[in-house]
Design a protein around this nucleic acid. Structure first.
Length: 805
RNA sequence: GGGAGUUUAGCUCAGUUGGUAGAGUACCUGCCUUACAAGCAGAGGGUCAUAGGUUCGAGUCCUAUAACUCCCACCA
């Protein structure tokens, strides 16, 4: 017997423990079932999980549960991403320390310690939210296996020349003191000032006007550019110009089509490096390299009296001096978009450093990425456009060096004699070059090496999760057999970072796609256009509170809303809807099961028409639901089963309950028939519902159905239709009976009568009199009608007199 | 400037191949009916963003416009 009231928190915890203890979600190595493998994106460990995270995971979990119930052996791990800059920043913030002020070993120890606490919290929350991952398959991107995989990946690419080391300008974050990748930049609107300066021509023939927002770059000015088509300035090409405040520096005026004639004054100064264009000009025209800003964002010695100042202070001081010395003739306040580092929101600089890169941007490679993108199955399809668009404009190789501390080290040394790169041997991995020496001499005979100090970018490791999952570092054959994995899911914000790079790595190492299908979920919006985010403190409902108040089943119900891949607005009426369904499922099950205490699993000889009808009705719902899951539309699938459940309660149970209550009136056979239908419909409906609401359905299954079904958990049952003989027109004919009952209910409602009010007689007009007659007892009982008259004709129901009380 | 998405009932959202506009919720009217009042039955409510076009017929297809969102480019 089910409890009178369903205690959400108690039951959810109970079944979560049960699933873990019994290993319900464990991957079975020895199974002969087909494997369905999920490359679960390891969440970045930072702060607290919120509804936004859980939403994407929950939708993917529904697909996992669907595949499991289709009979797949699920490989569904839960890893954590906890190396690299994001984790380092978290550790610095939580422990109030700075990584670069501590010995690396010490910092790493503190970081690992903090990370394990966070991992545990994340894992607990995932379990509490009802995820069906196999927790024993977890990994951390900082653990030995991940490091080994990541380092092997690097060595493979370095040996083939795909990974290369070069000194070239790239985005640099002065706050985090590291290089960053183009994909890690965001735009931010900032107020600034356009400063109009007069540069003096070296021959004394006058001045030329140049506008700049970054006058602190004057000491690094290495050239002046005008547009070759600009008639105003053609005569300047080839002339020398003195740099204001640094007049000992003379630079040449050159012509380049990249200069916008109508921008600023139409004359640009090129500094190393103010931005991407400066870097391009510097390379193209072989200009001098002058560094005005150091790693930490302070002015270098070439800035003379400004050296040591932070760039922003130097800007103020330089502007004052420019004013005093008469160079500055105009200032316009402007707002412009500045590239900032997504992790810390600080504007980035362009600096030149020796870095490791991975080739990604030749036209042939770009075409390859596009071909692979087209080969991949995208859900929803429209997300592919974002990927293609991004790949099409790729113009830089992937920088993977980070001048940080907590991450996977490069397995690399440099020969002190000839400078040649020395790679570690694969069987030595994972290796930390700072504490280990190479096991062999350099080719030049030298045995003295300098270790690479940098660590790899987070993405360099996160991009090999399919290789971590398929054991590529240990056994390439095993891995090749398991690749591509079945599915990866993620948010739409990481298509260009994570997904693309994972595709790149799998192609380079194994010549295939990392996965067959990619699911891209939408975002939970707190308000129009505002992403749900802990840091923006707009989480109206904390995940912990929501689980406490509504339970995981209801939150999962909410997560399943709408079309897959679309952004959804958070609303608590959605949670209330879920709660209503939960309540309904409980009450209906409680009620139905109370009549099944003497149920026997033998199929009755005679099944009554309305019982057949509801079973066929379920099968119709089953087919629709199943198709939606196959199309990765969890929301529509949930709608179908939900709609069916309410129909089952409002129309079928009302009919069946008379027969179940009073076998002495309607006959034992009629009761057995209703029991058969109730058992089958409720069981099958719960199975479909278990994908969305795994806890309550498990409770009901365990309390009653397991004794007959013998399968250990509802989540291991296979999804099937109810086995019931096909019958001509059963759906349409049964619907007529439901409509007849509906007409009587409408009559009572319009006349403000109670539903139990008895009606003396009704007259039914329809063309399926035979069928309707066969349901006469049900109709009379549920509609409280004494006599029925039948007439052939267009459907109608005439209601007679009400029986006076 | 380029690309993608969105616009349907007060609110949240469905609407498949073009064929009489849907659900839930809210509001309103009834109903204590022996699972559930967090329930049941019923009613009202829409110029499908705007303007054109194709068609016998357009929420759906085409063109343009507007508003909002996102990605990219611009950043001198």
């Amino acid at each position: 017997m089910l409890d009178n009231k369903y205690n959400i928190n108690e039951k959810e915890a109970k079944w979560q423990n049960f699933w873990q203890e019994k290993g319900i979600y464990k991957f079975d190595k020895n199974s002969n079932k087909p494997t369905y493998s999920i490359d679960t994106p390891p969440p970045t460990v930072s702060g607290e999980l919120h509804l936004g995270h859980i939403s994407g995971f929950t939708q993917a979990d529904m697909m996992a549960r669907f595949r499991r119930m289709q009979g797949f052996n699920m490989y569904y791990p839960l890893g954590f991403d906890n190396n690299g800059l994001p984790t380092e920043l978290l550790v610095e913030k939580k422990k109030n320390i700075r990584a670069h002020t501590l010995p690396r070993e010490e910092f790493t120890k503190i970081a690992l310690d903090l990370v394990s606490t966070y991992n545990q919290n994340y894992r607990d929350m995932m379990v509490k939210a009802g995820m069906s991952c196999d927790l024993s398959l977890g990994y951390n991107t900082i653990d030995d296996k991940s490091q080994k995989t990541s380092q092997k990946s690097f060595i493979d690419l370095a040996r083939r020349g795909i990974a290369y080391r070069e000194d070239k300008p790239g985005p640099w974050c002065c706050k985090c003191r590291t290089s960053v990748a183009a994909a890690e930049l965001e735009d931010k609107e900032l107020d600034s000032i356009f400063n109009y300066l007069n540069f003096r021509l070296a021959d004394g023939s006058g001045t030329i006007p140049i506008a700049t927002t970054r006058p602190e770059f004057l000491p690094a000015c290495v050239g002046i550019f005008v547009n070759p088509e600009d008639d105003r300035y053609k005569h300047l090409i080839g002339k020398k110009v003195k740099v204001p405040l640094f007049e000992e520096n003379e630079v040449e005026v050159r012509a380049d089509a990249k200069v916008g004639i109508d921008k600023g004054t139409g004359i640009v100064m090129c500094c190393t490096f103010g931005d991407q264009t400066d870097a391009e000009w510097w390379k193209e025209y072989h200009l001098e390299l002058k560094r005005a800003i150091d790693d930490g964002g302070k002015m270098t010695e070439i800035a003379g009296k400004y050296a040591g100042m932070k760039s922003i202070e130097a800007r103020k001081a330089i502007i004052e001096d420019l004013k005093d010395q008469g160079y500055l003739y105009k200032q316009d306040p402007i707002t412009h978009a500045v590239k900032v580092h997504e992790r810390c929101d600080e504007p980035i600089e362009f600096l030149s450093k020796k870095q490791w890169f991975i080739q990604t941007s030749t036209p042939e490679l770009k075409q390859k990425w596009i071909d692979l993108g087209n080969e991949l199955v995208w859900h929803p399809e429209s997300m592919k456009a974002r990927y293609i668009a991004w790949v099409s404009i790729l113009n830089q190789d992937w920088s993977i060096s980070r001048q940080r501390y907590f991450g996977v080290p490069f397995p690399v040394w440099y020969c002190n004699n000839c400078g040649k790169v020395k790679l570690a041997e694969i069987n030595e991995l994972p290796v930390n070059p700072l504490t280990t020496n190479p096991t062999s001499h350099c080719d030049c005979g030298c045995n003295e090496f300098t270790a690479e100090q940098d660590v790899m970018d987070t993405w360099a490791t996160s991009s090999v999760t399919p290789q971590i999952n398929t054991n590529w570092a240990e056994d390439e054959q095993e891995s090749n057999a398991k690749m591509p994995m079945s599915m990866r899911f993620c948010g739409r914000d990481i298509i260009t970072t994570w997904d693309l790079r994972t595709i790149i790595k799998s192609y380079y190492h194994q010549g295939c796609l990392p996965w067959k299908e990619l699911l891209v979920n939408g975002w939970v919006m707190a308000d129009k256009g505002v992403k749900f985010s802990k840091s923006k403190s707009n989480s109206k409902v904390s995940l912990t509170d929501a689980i406490r108040d509504y339970g995981a089943d209801v939150i999962r119900y909410w997560c399943a809303n709408g079309a897959y891949g679309r952004d959804v607005m958070f609303s608590d009426t959605g949670l209330k809807d879920g709660y209503k369904l939960l309540n309904k499922v409980w009450n209906a099950s409680k009620f139905v099961l109370s009549f099944l205490y003497d149920y026997t699993p033998e199929k009755p000889e005679n099944i009554l028409p309305m019982d057949k009808h509801i079973m066929h009705k379920f099968n119709e719902c089953f087919e629709k639901t199943y198709k939606f899951y196959e199309k990765v539309e969890m929301g529509y699938a949930k709608d179908e089963i939900e709609k069916f459940f309410w129909y089952f309660c409002d129309n079928y149970i009302e009919i069946a309950k008379n027969r179940l209550y009073k076998p002495e009136v309607y006959g034992e056979q009629a009761k057995k028939s209703a029991q058969w239908a109730c058992y089958n419909v409720l069981l099958h409906a719960l199975q479909l519902l278990s994908i969305t609401m795994p806890h309550i359905t498990e409770e009901i299954y365990q309390e009653y159905f397991k004794q007959f079904e013998k399968i250990e958990s509802i989540h291991l049952c296979e999804l099937n239709k109810i086995s019931v003989e096909a019958e001509q027109n059963i759906l349409a004919n049964g619907d007529i009976v439901v409509d007849i009952v509906g007409r009587v209910r409408q009559f009572k409602s319009l006349n403000q009568l109670s539903m139990k009010t008895e009606i003396e007689d009704i007259e039914i007009f329809c063309n399926e009199i035979e069928f309707v007659k066969s349901c006469e007892a049900d109709i009379k009982a549920v509609a409280s009608v004494k006599n029925i008259k039948y007439t052939t004709g267009e459907f109608d129901v005439k209601i007679g007199k009400v029986v006076e009380q």
